[in-house]
């Protein structure tokens, strides 16, 4: 008898709890970060202090860039509005501390995914939104066309607190070249010093080289050498331990990439609801309950595509049309010869 009473009580309790928490989604119950974001009504996103094409504020303080678009996608998914994001410009040095201390909800700041960062810093990298590699920029007039022409005594400007410093040492040491590293805290000072002639070469991720070149006094005087000396998969980062939040950020990014794969754009997203292809219907939430599985509503992906656009649109808007990196290179879809390949949203 008492067994039944116990079961009955627990059943009643469960029903009651469902009423109590009906207003709060399941995800919010499970994820502390999500709960915080919903409570505040905006997403706090850590970005760079200005890398054109990735995360860069314009004169009126509006942020644009492909890193910024990932934040906007998450905001669209979670809060329903891609503009409910508060961006925080962080130096390379501050970024992980800010994330770990809970000052930002996610970090989307051209950050390289490495083992030590993933494990040592208790962070979780959720995916890759840009495949990059470290390169060198030199003055055209120097006549250098390959890293093989570097000689002892070369000075290289770069950012402090990045993987760049480590790769640079590996590169020069393996070739036995003596070099002088000149490392600044902020990217603007690196550009200014290199531009003034303090260094013979400027080294960082090739995407950043392309972006920073636009800031030089004479962009055409500089060339990026063809060699790539490292792998730099850049992607958004969250704190370790909040698995629900991690999933939301990962799939917000994946949806953008998959939308491009299926040709769903911000313009035709609504129409895709009635597509004949079940995969497209699933992607925009017209079929299946993928959003609910993440603890969101079923329109989450539709909002991302409508408000932010798919990955291709984001790339074109920020890196293609601006002339920073018109050639997508490895960041083309796997179906088109690139290495952009994400797990299916199903």
């Amino acid at each position: 008898m008492s067994k039944y009473i116990k079961q009955l009580t627990s059943l009643v309790a469960m029903v009651l709890m469902m009423f109590v928490f009906a207003s709060e989604t399941m995800a919010a119950k499970k994820s502390k970060t999500m709960k915080n974001v919903l409570k505040k009504g905006f997403l706090r996103c850590g970005v760079s202090q200005g890398v054109p094409g990735f995360s860069n504020p314009d004169a009126s303080g509006n942020w644009t860039g492909i890193d910024v678009d990932v934040c906007r996608a998450v905001a669209a998914a979670v809060l329903g509005d891609a503009n409910k994001v508060k961006f925080t410009g962080l130096t390379a040095k501050e970024r992980f501390t800010a994330l770990n201390a809970g000052e930002i909800d996610m970090l989307s700041r051209n950050t390289t995914w490495t083992l030590s960062r993933d494990a040592d810093l208790s962070l979780t990298f959720v995916g890759v939104n840009f495949y990059d590699g470290q390169g060198f920029m030199v003055r055209k007039s120097s006549g250098i066309t390959s890293v093989n022409q570097f000689k002892d005594g070369i000075s290289a400007c770069t950012n402090t607190g990045t993987t760049t410093e480590l790769n640079m040492r590996d590169f020069f040491d393996s070739r036995g070249i003596k070099y002088e590293p000149v490392a600044f805290e902020k990217a603007d000072e690196v550009v200014a010093a290199y531009d003034a002639g303090r260094c013979d070469t400027y080294t960082t991720d090739k995407s950043a080289l392309a972006a920073q070149r636009t800031k030089m006094s004479n962009p055409d005087d500089h060339i990026t050498l063809p060699e790539t000396i490292s792998k730099e998969p850049l992607g958004p980062v969250v704190r370790q331990g909040d698995h629900v939040w991690e999933d939301i950020v990962r799939w917000s990014l994946n949806v953008m990439i998959e939308a491009e794969e299926y040709g769903v754009t911000s313009a035709n997203a609504d129409a895709s609801k009635t597509s004949n292809n079940p995969a497209i219907k699933r992607l925009v939430g017209a079929e299946g309950e993928l959003g609910l599985a993440l603890g969101l509503d079923n329109d989450w992906s539709l909002r991302i595509i409508k408000q932010v656009g798919n990955y291709g649109e984001s790339y074109k808007r920020n890196l293609g049309d601006t002339g920073i990196l018109p050639d997508r290179g490895p960041n083309e879809l796997w179906t088109k010869g690139g290495i952009l390949y994400v797990s299916p949203a199903r």
Binding site: F96, T97, R117, T160, G161, T162, A183, E185, E189
Partner: peptide
Amino acid sequence: AALIAYPDLVLVFAGTALMQTGRA
């Protein structure tokens, strides 16, 4: 000094080393 790339205690230790180890 950290601003102008002079490798003092703040730049190399509280900067680069902090960054590479995450031991804030």
